[in-house]
């Protein structure tokens, strides 16, 4: 098994309203192709950990390494470029840009990365949309789609740059059971067929139990792994 993400002794403090240690020496290894779910009660620090792993939160002690690169201590601009190429995000809400069409929303991270020509990017975006069964909506405004469809567009957007890891913060938190099942199936298919690494924060036990690797947190520590 090849590790894609490792952390060593990650500590994090909140200073407002008073000093409080939210993460306590987290050592975590995520292997390539693994579908990992982070679970725990509200306030246990699972979301905070995920934002540290996402590179967006740089205010922590310890060390973070993704895809062989040490990311601790890099500048915000370097981290932004890293996220663009290596990490895809799916949040509780879809966060699609309302003024743009479905296809444009999926294309934006790839246009930013600028690895392929515009035409190739469009083809790749269509392929991802087809894979998720929403290619017939490609030209519609993103706001005209249903909640489940929008979340699938967000997944297509996360996939467009072939990231090393997809990170999800409650990716099914705002979906009904039908769409939750659909998103879960997509995630399993991605890991099993395409060897896509996925880290998802969830409080949905059913969802977590069906994932490959369930990591449970409590009071800022990993208690069950």
């Amino acid at each position: 098994m090849e590790p894609i993400l490792t952390t060593k002794g990650v500590n994090k403090f909140f200073y407002e309203p008073e000093k409080f240690q939210v993460l306590k020496s987290i050592d975590l290894t995520v292997n390539k192709g693994e579908f990992l779910s982070l679970v725990g009660k509200s306030g246990c620090g699972k979301s905070t950990l995920m934002y540290v792993l996402s590179t967006m939160d740089t205010d922590y002690e310890g060390e973070l390494q993704i895809a062989g690169q040490r990311l601790t201590g890099k500048s915000q601009n370097e981290l932004a470029a890293f996220r663009n190429a290596h990490i895809g995000f799916v949040f509780q809400f879809h966060y699609l840009l309302p003024e743009f069409s479905v296809l444009q929303n999926v294309m934006i991270p790839a246009l930013k990365l600028n690895r392929y020509s515009r035409k190739e990017i469009e083809e790749r975006a269509m392929t991802k949309l087809k894979m998720l069964g929403i290619d017939e909506h490609a030209r519609k405004a993103s706001s005209k789609l249903s909640g489940g469809q929008q979340q699938r567009v967000a997944i297509a957007r996360a996939l467009i740059n072939d990231p090393d890891i997809i990170m999800g913060d409650e990716p099914t938190g705002n979906l009904d059971s039908y769409n939750t099942q659909l998103v879960f199936d997509i995630f399993s298919e991605l890991t099993h067929t395409y060897k896509q690494t996925i880290i998802a924060v969830t409080h949905d036990d059913e969802f977590a139990n069906k994932s490959d690797h369930r990591v449970e947190m409590s009071d800022g520590r990993i208690v069950k792994s």
Partner: peptide
């Protein structure tokens, strides 16, 4: 705000 946040998450630098 939400659009700015997601753009930054997806890899847009502050200057972009």
């Amino acid at each position: 705000m939400k659009d700015i946040a997601i753009l930054k998450a997806m890899g847009f630098a502050g200057v972009d």
